[in-house]
Design a binder for these strands. Structure first.
Lengths: 79, 79
DNA sequence: ATGTGACTGGCAGTCCGTT
DNA sequence: CAACGGACTGCCAGTCACA
């Protein structure tokens, strides 16, 4: 039953949302990183929840994932 | 009829979304800044679209505005 | 293909004040 | 009450070598 309580850090929830969506598209981290115009190792950090990325990179990632930011954050909120 | 074209910068759209929601709640910048745990002058910059804020502060702001991040970004996307 | 530590430059974020 | 300037600190952005 549970609901949750100690919710995970936003960075972790965001990273997971990105990863789930990326895999749904059948892309590798390298593919997505290239599409979003960011670096491969940076994306790796983002998916693992160790980076507190900012607005501009959030937008780039959403675009590369072919979802609106609202859709992406719906998954983050749900996480 | 066009609809879109040169869409405004994410920072500007985000700042406007925050401002509209803040005013709907009848809060001053100082009130909201205190509720979100960020600084007054920084919030001023954010609303004016001059700051590229990061994930953690986005979450704090959404919480202080009493909306989910998805709801907040729906307004940003619409902007 | 991905994870991770380390590194540096620039900006996110704070705080003073004035308009 | 909000915009804006200046100065400061800490952390994000961006990259590499290597497991």
């Amino acid at each position: 039953m549970g609901k949750k309580k100690g919710r995970a850090d936003v960075r972790e929830r965001f990273g997971l949302a990105v990863k789930v969506r990326r895999e749904a598209l059948g892309l590798t981290q390298e593919d997505l990183a290239a599409a979003a115009g960011i670096h491969r190792t940076y994306l790796s950090d983002v998916e693992r929840g160790t980076r507190n990325l900012s607005l501009i990179n959030v937008e780039r990632l959403a675009a590369a994932l072919q979802v609106t930011m609202a859709e992406l954050f719906a998954a983050v909120d749900a996480g």
